[in-house]
């Protein structure tokens, strides 16, 4: 599924890098622990996290993630947007919980990593 289609289904506010919305999403991983994210080998993966800081975006940069969805109403900061723009990473704010969003993506057929 394209990221754009996914956002259409679940809602959420695309903060930056709309040009990345045509990327394919196959897997999702939900975690606030960046070291766990850094162990993943999958491509076409979107990260669901409540950790809204610069290191979440750094982690996405190093792991070649196409998008981060920030749950629980966490706000994306200016320096996060700047780093995301440099690397073409889509940042999305989502008002619900991690559990709600994970359930929705699972129902849409987005796959768990394991």
């Amino acid at each position: 599924m394209k990221l754009e289609e996914l956002v259409g289904h679940v809602g959420g506010n695309v903060i930056c890098c709309k040009e990345g919305l045509n990327k394919e999403v196959e897997y999702a991983f939900a975690s606030d622990l960046m070291s766990d994210v850094l162990t993943l080998k999958n491509e076409n993966l979107v990260l669901i996290t409540g950790l809204a800081n610069i290191q979440a975006v750094r982690t996405a940069e190093m792991s070649d993630l196409s998008a981060i969805i920030f749950v629980r109403n966490k706000r994306v900061s200016e320096d996060m947007i700047r780093l995301a723009q440099e690397n073409g990473i889509v940042l999305i704010e989502y008002p619900g919980t991690m559990f709600r969003l994970s359930g929705m993506l699972y129902n849409l057929g987005v796959k768990p990593v394991y």
């Binding site: 622990l33 960046m34 070291s35 850094l38 290191q55």
Partner: peptide
Amino acid sequence: REMGFGAGMGLPNIKD
């Protein structure tokens, strides 16, 4: 930990 690290997975993952 607030920065998203401190899970004790760093060194093993570097080796990996």
